[in-house]
């Protein structure tokens, strides 16, 4: 490889020293060694130590840019240098953040806490492990998510289609009012209002029903706008040729417009769904034992952050397929 570079020198002119492999290979080894063994520990970080850190970062950035902008360099080398950025910052954080790393395992990844039973001794809780409590909480969150996802989708689809097809001034006014109001209301406020004020009107809703209702109303408002823009993006010529064939307005919508709108709507829709799942956490304000509520109770009971970490991981793992889907859909739409 060095050979071929040497040969190309004639063609590309003089290769500067910092782009040559004679420099880069030794640099990588010496830099790694220096940063691991010579960097001062946090206790001895004086003004001189700070200067060293800054110089080290500047040098790395310089070489990184030189490598990344060199079209002759192979991808694996570029990748190593890019990965190096993460490693260096990870190392700096580990060393200089002042964290007590020896206790991280105990406070953040304590499986013993998760295996314990008898939390608050409710019901048969004496035999229920905290793992089970967390998984029940996950299931509760998923239930709220699925219910409000389905209901808000149906509500929004109905409103968007009515808005476009019926196109009645008064009806449109009310739909717009609904959309504007519920897009402006914070979901936590709505949850509290429904939960604590409806009982005065004689309407008693379970916390679960309250959560689903509040999230559905808010999500429905947003999705209504998403669907409407998807429907309106389809040219009116499409509707006209469907109508000219004798289709009713509803059939034209169902057979011609909506199938085309789906492609436009799917990426923002997926993003809204991801947001909806995360917003189930807000149901903790009305004491639903969903992930956040359960994790926080366990955390304060055991004075240990592990349940919170587990909770966060639960969201991430559940949402991973959705976030991937959103990315892929977005990319496909751009390339189409």
């Amino acid at each position: 490889m060095i050979d071929s570079i040497e040969k190309k020198k004639g063609k590309y002119g003089h290769l500067p020293w910092y782009r040559r492999y004679e420099f880069l290979y030794p640099f990588m080894i010496i830099y790694a060694a220096l940063i691991i063994f010579v960097m001062p520990p946090v206790s001895r970080l004086n003004i001189f130590g700070y200067l060293m850190l800054i110089v080290a970062v500047v040098i790395y950035v310089f070489v990184l840019v030189a490598v990344q902008t060199d079209r002759e360099k192979p991808n694996w080398l570029k990748n190593i240098f890019a990965f190096g950025v993460i490693l260096i910052f990870g190392l700096f954080f580990y060393r200089y953040s002042g964290a007590r790393w020896s206790e991280v395992g105990h406070y953040f990844f304590n499986m013993d806490v998760m295996r314990r039973t008898g939390f608050m001794e409710v019901g048969e809780a004496a035999t229920t492990t905290n793992w089970e409590l967390m998984f029940r909480a996950l299931w509760t969150a998923i239930e709220i998510f699925l219910m409000s996802a389905v209901l808000s989708t149906l509500l929004a689809l109905l409103l968007a289609v009515v808005r476009v097809i019926v196109n009645d001034k008064l009806l449109n006014f009310f739909i717009e009012l609904y959309v504007d109001v519920f897009r402006a209301v914070p979901s936590i406020a709505l949850l509290l209002v429904i939960y604590f004020s409806l009982p005065y009107a004689g309407i008693l809703l379970s916390p679960f029903a309250t959560g689903v209702l509040a999230l559905t109303l808010i999500e429905g408002a947003y999705l209504c706008e998403v669907f409407r823009s998807g429907i309106e993006a389809i040219h009116k010529n499409q509707v006209e040729s469907a109508r000219a064939l004798g289709m009713t307005a509803w059939k034209a919508m169902k057979l011609v417009v909506l199938p085309q709108s789906i492609k436009i709507v799917l990426p923002p829709y997926t993003n809204r769904m991801i947001g909806l799942m995360k917003r189930t956490a807000e149901c903790s304000v009305i004491a639903i034992a969903e992930i956040l509520q359960t994790a926080r109770q366990l955390q304060s009971w055991y004075a240990n952050a592990t349940p919170l970490i587990i909770g966060a991981l639960m969201y991430m793992i559940f949402l991973f397929p959705l976030t991937r889907a959103a990315t892929i859909l977005e990319r496909r739409r751009k390339s189409a």
Binding site: S241, A244, G246, V256
Partner: peptide, 16 residues
Amino acid sequence: RTDIGMVFQDYNLFPH
């Protein structure tokens, strides 16, 4: 309308 066919300038086929 089922008895009347109509052909438009821009074809307007259903692209999906």
